[in-house]
Design a protein around this nucleic acid. Structure first.
Length: 602
RNA sequence: GCGGGUGUAGCUCAGUUUGGUUAGAGCGUCGGCCUGUCACGCCGAAGGUCGCGGGUUCGAGCCCCGUCACUCGCGCCA
């Protein structure tokens, strides 16, 4: 018989009755009836009930052990009878009559319980992550993550991709975030940067002729955390392909995404490929966002002309000053009580957006509400028609200028659909956002700036850069969005040094500067570079969607807290003067940091 | 850096409309009882600087000011 186990804790069935077995695992729960004692023994695979009979000499030992102690149990599989069968357990038809129990490891009193669904404070969970990870939900999440990654690998390899590891200790890359730096001992005063993404390396792999690269790539960015954004490090399915157009990239990633979501969310509706392609400008106009949630059926309509020159002074003034009015339909809300509209208006005020105007259409189609009073019938009818409204519907208005108005229209779209319960449930809806502008106007400086990745190929190439208004040029730059969450951005890259230098020139970078900062890659493109493109969907976010977890830390094995600290391993940590000297570093701590480290518990 | 929320027993939380004697419950822990439980049950006990500091008051868990921690969001960041 094996030293520790003949079966795992999910294996035994009625057909095993009579056999002598050995199981090892944690004491999930203990029910002591005085004479008789039950243990639920748990391992990675499941739970099996152990019985210690009334006359057993084991009783004395077992009575003393705490839950989460680790036992090795030898005994006989016996059938449970009648109502002692537990239909909730896969192993519920049997139990193990213990003949010998070895305590492999006894547990101290726990900081929180493994058994049960209680919520515990996150810092406690992170300090004792190894206990937290025993709990069913998080254990399942992490396992799912592993399976997702494994499936992603298989799907990519099946499509002819090759996995490579790119450097972790590398040079600063221009993704826009703050780098993590590592001091180089052999080069005093110099630093490695951890990669914000393997962007340049994967492009260089294409130049090297590998045709299709992918990697489950760790990325490092020294920026603040969010619920859906890990501080410090995260993982992407980073990939790149040679000799492809934008459509080729889409057609390659679509079956991977659709397949993954079908595999791991079998009870959800999944967008079938090809996913809808939505130009950036359309997305901003109709969804008020560059990451629209397609589960939300509402569409935003431009109704500026219906208010331009109208008697509704507030909006007429805004349109006269070059502002716009956007309408968000609220199907079936025409009959809602006044309080419904007041509540939304109050919400808009809390969002610091002045308020939220509306018109309701009653069952006869008559327009009602404060705005309708000041708007002639033809204009109301125009709005009704433009927004495709029926009798009994309502419509909300957002008026203003620029990005702020657009973003708020998107927020209102989400809010109304949520209030009216219109968001499709149990569905994953994908789309591509395409035709991102190559440049944007920096509002602070008034200068032209890259709006996304500077390495994207401008649509129209060098000709467009030379002859067109930079702000009118689109890039072969795209995002893939699922349920309103940006899973990835990507691009067809600029593989032509002449176009790249011109592209940077427009954004105000002289040629010498470009050569200095990106000379490595630029040079590579001078020795024969294939046209190439790719993307890098975030693994953590895919798993968040699949597990329906609102917080990224629920899908990461050992996450940092919001402050970027590892509470379990106590990182980051101070170092010794000897190490600092070796690295040619001297500390220059701000007062706050000194205070904080003084207060830190040892 | 800024704004919101939270902070009471090891853990989850309650603490009343308006400040009033000794701050409660459940889980867990410890002790006792219990031969069919699977959220076992029953009896009992221990366990509290009400995050911390200051203020108002005869009196503060509760009101005021400051501060710290955690968290959500903004800024930042694909």
């Amino acid at each position: 018989m094996h030293r520790y186990r003949t079966h795992n804790c999910a294996a035994l069935r009625a057909s095993d009755v009579g056999s002598i077995v050995k199981l090892s695992g944690w004491v999930h729960s203990k029910r002591d009836h005085g004479g008789l004692l039950f243990i639920d023994l748990r391992d990675h695979f499941g739970v099996t009930q152990i019985v210690i009979p009334a006359d057993s000499t084991l009783l004395e030992t077992v009575e003393k052990i705490r839950v989460e102690s680790v036992l090795c149990v030898t005994g006989k599989v016996v059938a449970r009878e009648g109502d002692t069968v537990n239909p909730k357990l896969p192993t519920g038809e049997i139990e193990i009559q213990a003949e010998d129990i070895e305590i492999l490891s006894s547990a101290a009193v726990l900081p929180f319980q493994v058994n049960g669904n209680e919520n515990y404070p996150e810092d406690l969970r992170l300090t004792y992550r190894y206990i937290d990870l025993r709990r069913e939900r998080i254990h399942r999440n992490i396992l799912l993550r592993s399976n997702v990654i494994s499936s992603l690998r298989n799907r990519m390899i099946a499509q002819g991709f090759t996995e490579f590891q790119t450097p972790i200790l590398t040079a600063s890359s221009p993704e826009g975030a703050r780098d993590f730096l590592v001091p180089a001992r052999l080069h005093p005063g110099k630093f490695y940067a951890l990669p914000q993404a393997p962007q340049q390396f994967k492009q260089l792999a294409m130049v090297a002729g590998f045709d299709r690269y992918f990697q489950i790539a760790p990325c490092f960015r020294d920026e603040a955390a969010r619920a859906d954004r890990s501080p410090g490090e995260f993982y992407q399915l980073d990939f790149e392909m040679s000799f492809v157009t934008q459509e080729d990239v889409f057609e390659t990633l679509e079956p991977v995404m659709e397949g993954i979501f079908r595999e791991f969310a079998p009870n959800h509706e999944i967008s079938p490929a090809p996913f809808e392609r939505i130009p950036y400008k359309t997305a901003m106009k109709e969804y008020g966002s560059d990451k629209p949630d397609l589960r939300n059926p509402l569409r935003i309509t431009d109704v500026t002309s219906a208010f331009d020159g109208s008697d509704f002074g507030l909006f007429a003034k805004i349109t006269a000053e070059g502002g716009e009015v956007r309408a968000i339909p609220a199907p079936g809300a025409g009959g809602k009580p006044r309080s419904f509209f007041d509540k939304l208006n109050g919400w808009a005020r809390e969002e610091k957006m002045g308020g939220l105007g509306y018109i309701t259409f009653d069952e006869t189609g008559a327009a009602k509400g404060p705005i309708a009073k000041n708007l002639d019938e033809a204009r109301c009818e125009q709005i009704k028609k433009a927004c495709n409204l029926q009798n009994g519907d309502a419509v909300f208005f957002v008026a203003g200028k620029g990005l702020e108005m657009i973003k708020f229209s998107g927020t209102v779209r989400t809010k109304i659909a949520t209030e009216l319960n219109l968001i499709e449930q149990n569905a994953f809806r994908f789309c591509w956002i395409v035709d991102f502008p190559m440049y944007e106007l920096n509002e602070e400086t008034g200068l032209v700036d890259f709006s996304h990745n500077p390495f994207s190929m401008p649509q129209g190439g060098l000709e467009a850069l030379n002859n067109r208004d930079p702000l009118e040029i689109n890039a072969y730059q795209y995002d893939i969005v699922c349920n309103g969450i940006e899973l990835s951005s990507g691009a067809i890259r600029n593989h032509r040094p002449d176009i790249m230098i011109r592209a940077f020139e427009i954004a105000g970078y002289p040629e010498e500067e470009v050569e200095k900062r990106f000379g490595g890659m630029l040079n590579a493109f001078r020795y024969g570079a294939p046209p190439h493109g790719g993307a890098a969907p975030g693994v953590d976010r895919i798993v968040m969607l699949l597990t329906d977890e609102p917080n990224i830390r629920e899908v990461i094995l050992f996450p940092l807290n919001q402050q970027g600290e590892d509470l379990m391993m106590c990182a980051p940590a101070p170092t010794t003067p000897e190490r600092l000297k070796e690295l040619s570093l001297a500390l220059n701590l701000p007062k706050v940091a000194v205070k904080r480290s003084e207060n830190a518990p040892e």
